[in-house]
Design a protein around this nucleic acid. Structure first.
Lengths: 326, 326
DNA sequence: ATGAAAGCGCTAACAC
DNA sequence: GTGTTAGCGCTTTCAT
């Protein structure tokens, strides 16, 4: 049976409110009293019950963080950055995984709603309307997708996609395939829009494939369709798919980048690990995590500001992209 | 301002206790009343405040899950399995990452203590005494390490290490290096103990390296020391280190498995992805996650049982292990 | 089957 | 600087 504030009060001969103040407003209590209370509290192993405190203050000092798939290497750096940033501000982060399921997404937001001061919604698959509705239950910051009226932090993948297309053009490629990601992903639409524009500007042909699940398996499975497009270079929705695709191509006897170039997006740890190493668009995920935490916490003071933070991306050229064959 | 139980009571013309019962003990309330209450609740967007409920029932219906490093591919399958298993039993899982820091570990357990019904502590780096102390604040289930007096689920890495050594022996290797993992890891000690035994039984030489951080970089950095041992085969603490080591060896001009064999542990997604694919000991992480959730929840009823669940491991032979050269 | 009242652990006015 | 009092949103006796 853990000690409560009342136990501490009784033992140290003061009233509960004094004990309460000792922990939540130490400067309001006489140093000697405070010392005594602290000592007895320590002795009893007393720790303030944050849940009970939250009931009255309305602040839990917790942040919810919802991602589509913890196993996707894109997320861990974001999660870790958000966590350590939040901890520095005396907040704890609760992470939850939706399995790429919009239904679970909603359920989790609602479940977290009363136990956190706000939720970081990463790469949500729900509709804007659903998200907006949820934001009435709990302060939301959306990551990786702009939602009208809500604070969001996005990464400029459009720029990255353009850079990638330009890079491939420079290497002599005239026909590029875009290996699309999941339906409902804002990033996916953005990449497609930007790649299309960039290809047109360069007078290149662009063939769009998809939608596809954003997984390695799905990338591998598309090797065949990629080949059939006749493209000499591919821009994939993310590193996972790019790596899978390279694998699938290898199995078909096609080598990268000699016969076909492949570019990923995200610059996950993966991209340095594969052979060939992956040319990819680096998205500043750690910075995004920190920015999202900042927005959530500052928004406590000023709920009407609906900022949109855009982080720059850059192209990292490695070994999976090369000159157009022949 | 979200609707409270009182709002619903007022609007539907019943008392709060009736509304309460409608949600927590529906069979105790007249079907027609219940229907009406439910309708108004729906209309107001009312959702019971789990935190307030927990204050009085003592059950939050949340589970804490603490891991050393979300970015380590060993954990995501465990986390996902625990999460979906828990959700099926109307529990939510809050994940937290300690960054391999025992201090943070303790802080997180204490922070979670009052907001969850129990904590799954995965691969803790704390001392047994510290863990036992924490278990007085919140029910604990330890994963990946037995702690006397506490329920735990472990995977039989000793068996896996033995199988690995026997496999290498069969391939003709007479000198094996053990690339050790982090200090404080029970698995690490276990692997070492078992590998030493198995090597002795086979009349093999075993050189132990470490302790080392359980990362890819650390594996790569040890390539040199591994070579200096003169061993023709290496068993690494985990896949991450094994993959890093292969990389480091390659950079030194050594090819795997022709010149040296490398075996990992965990069978993470990584191991199928690398070239050569990795021979490794498969640990049933998803099953471990589910088992841990089960133990935690059933322990609510019977706190004195301190079970120890041991899951079997198996050796997956792929391409990174081959015959001893010469 | 429903209402009345007490209280979970804590904080926040307001007195003194 | 400390005590008093009320109450956060909810459940749970105990009556009725």
């Amino acid at each position: 049976m853990p000690a409560t504030i009342r136990d501490v009060a009784r033992v140290s001969g003061v009233h509960v409110s004094t004990v309460s103040r000792t922990f939540s407003a130490p400067h309001l209590v006489n140093p000697s009293t405070r010392a005594r209370v602290l000592e007895f509290a320590e002795q009893l192993g007393y720790r303030p019950n944050r849940a009970a405190r939250a009931l009255i203050t309305g602040r839990t000092h917790n942040i919810g963080l919802i991602v589509a798939d913890i196993a996707n290497p894109f997320f861990p750096p974001l999660i870790k950055a958000a966590e350590s940033h939040a901890r520095g501000r005396d907040y704890h982060v609760f992470v939850a995984d939706t399995n790429e399921d919009p239904g679970v997404e909603e359920e989790l937001v609602l479940a977290l709603a009363k136990q956190v001061d706000g939720v970081l919604l990463c790469s949500p698959r729900m509709s804007n309307a659903q998200i907006e509705k949820l934001s009435r239950d709990v302060p939301l910051v959306v990551v990786n997708r702009p939602v009208p009226g809500l604070p969001a932090v996005i990464m400029d993948v459009a720029q990255g996609a353009r850079l990638a297309v330009e890079h491939l053009t420079m290497l002599g490629h005239r026909h590029i395939a875009l290996l699309g990601g999941p339906r409902g992903s804002w990033n996916n639409r953005e990449i497609r829009r930007s790649a299309t524009l960039a290809a047109r500007a360069a007078g290149n042909e662009l063939t769009v494939l998809g939608p596809n699940p954003p997984t390695e398996e799905s990338g591998a499975a598309q090797a065949d369709s990629v080949l059939r497009t006749g493209a000499t270079a591919v821009l994939a929705y993310n590193d996972l798919m790019a790596v899978g695709l390279i694998d699938g191509l290898n199995r078909l006897g096609i080598t990268v980048p000699d016969q076909i170039s492949v570019v990923g997006i995200d610059d996950t740890a993966l991209s340095r690990r594969t052979r060939p190493t992956l040319t990819t668009v680096a998205t500043p995920t750690a910075a995004a995590g920190r920015a999202a935490v900042d927005m959530l916490l500052q928004h406590g003071d000023d709920r009407r500001t609906t900022a949109l933070v855009t982080l720059q991306t850059e192209l990292i050229i490695r070994d999976s992209s090369g000159p157009c064959p022949k």
